[in-house]
């Protein structure tokens, strides 16, 4: 599929090898399995490769109207709680995932929002625990929050 041709992009981010960090990927898999995605929407488990996609969009003439990022964060909220996050609220810990180390004081999501006028939405879920060593699988509370994250994505997919 060609993500540069779509009106809305939904990108799941994170590393499935590090427990709850794989939340974004798991949400995308659940979404693809259980919901009918409209034809104007591109849904992808971007995993660790989200920067590649965002980089191409930043420089492309064609841009989506909206990008929905699904990711795990650690902001000290109740584990498994799912919420909207503004790009400017992204913790530094996560900003690096959206940077190609090109822009010293910003990142690709901010470029898209502030300079490319793309509507960037971040749907985040609070992790319970991210292991320091490789360990597969979400915690139970994160797994339980997948359906609510999908509902939030669907609302964001609604027409203008």
């Amino acid at each position: 599929m060609d993500y540069l041709e779509k009106e809305i992009l939904v990108l799941g981010c994170g590393n499935i090898l590090f427990g709850d960090d794989g939340f974004g990927s798991e949400v995308i898999q659940y979404l693809q399995k259980n919901y009918n995605v409209p034809s104007n929407v591109y849904v992808d488990d971007a995993g660790l490769s989200v920067r590649t996609i965002l980089f191409n969009i930043v420089l492309s003439e064609k841009k989506p109207r909206k990008i929905i990022i699904v990711d795990a964060v650690d902001l000290g909220k109740p584990a498994g709680s799912t919420f909207h996050l503004d790009v400017d609220e992204m913790p530094e810990i996560k900003c690096d995932d959206f940077s190609m180390h090109q822009v010293p004081t910003s990142n690709l999501l901010k470029e898209l929002k502030n300079f490319c006028k793309v509507d960037v939405k971040i749907i985040a879920s609070q992790v319970q625990y991210i292991p320091e060593e490789v360990s597969l699988g979400l915690s139970n509370v994160m797994r339980d929050s997948i359906p609510s994250a999908c509902e939030m994505i669907l609302k964001e997919m609604s027409p203008l």
Binding site: L17, G47, P131, E133, V134
Partner: peptide, 24 residues
């Protein structure tokens, strides 16, 4: 850390799919 340990005991044919998650 821990990737080698994580792989021990897994079917070897799973590795080509797992290793793509090492590096984006």
């Amino acid at each position: 850390r821990g990737f080698e340990k994580f792989c021990i005991g897994r079917p070897v044919e799973e590795l080509p799919r797992i290793v793509t998650s090492i590096c984006g």
